[in-house]
Design a protein around this nucleic acid. Structure first.
Lengths: 130, 130
DNA sequence: CTTTAAATTAGTAATGATTACTGTTTTTAT
DNA sequence: ATAAAAACAGTAATCATTACTAATTTAAAG
């Protein structure tokens, strides 16, 4: 058999499921360490990669130089606040029709796309008005 | 006056204008060094950042862990081949209407989006058939 | 044409996220 | 219970990028 049980992996996955803010490996490390104090950072990285590879979680590369992770693997888009850096889920209709547009004048096969939106989040908008 | 002339910056910009393949800082460094042998890598990075900041070039963060640079600052989208890693321009109609979709159910201000497409490029498609 | 302050440079050191390595421990099939 | 495969903790290595520093270059002003 390929994959064996590990308490560390279970805790990592569980922690990620409790969070909707797409934490980084370091955030995961700091939090899981409170339940399992001598887990190592390498173990966190290895398991996040492993869980991504099996499709149990999603790895988000948002261009900020740090990988974020999301336990919600359903198709959805993300928003990054340029003021506070927070990453939010976007409830919106599918934009997968852009795949066809991309393929129209292209000499190759378009399999998918990565899209993220940026701007000012609701919380930061409120702070600006106050 | 803020910015002064520099031969190094001119060469970096000129090199980038000759290329349509969105090179990385390292590629720029290796090439410009042939015209200006003792330019330093730090100078290349600093000037690429400077040119990006002034809007003369575009910095592309494609999630492959390395920044790519593009002298074509007109609005257009990119395609990354998952086989050979090459980055190509996509001739396609604007997809900026997705901004409105993103904003519809969102409690904040959506300013823009980053989108890139991936799949198999024409060249790799041909190699697969042969 | 000099002076001079600001900008830029080359070269190198530091940073920070991530991956690789190694000897030990845990899991699980037999 | 045994043993092979998987996973681990801890640490070292990697790699892109940024920061630092003393020296050089640019360009405005005298």
């Amino acid at each position: 058999m390929a994959q064996k049980y590990s308490r560390q992996r279970e805790l990592i996955k569980n922690f990620l499921c409790t969070r909707k803010d797409h934490p980084t490996a370091d955030i995961v490390y700091m939090n899981v360490r409170q339940q399992y104090p001598n887990i190592s950072l390498g173990t966190v990285y290895r398991n996040l990669t492993l869980l991504s590879d099996t499709g149990e979680i999603r790895r988000l590369r948002l261009g900020d130089g740090v990988d974020h992770f999301d336990a919600d693997t359903s198709p959805h888009n993300h928003f990054i606040c340029t003021r506070c850096g927070s990453v939010l889920d976007l409830e919106m209709e599918s934009i997968d029709h852009i795949l066809e547009k991309a393929g129209e004048h292209f000499d190759g096969k378009v399999d998918g796309h990565v899209t993220y939106f940026y701007g000012t989040c609701g919380s930061c908008c409120n702070k600006l008005q106050a």
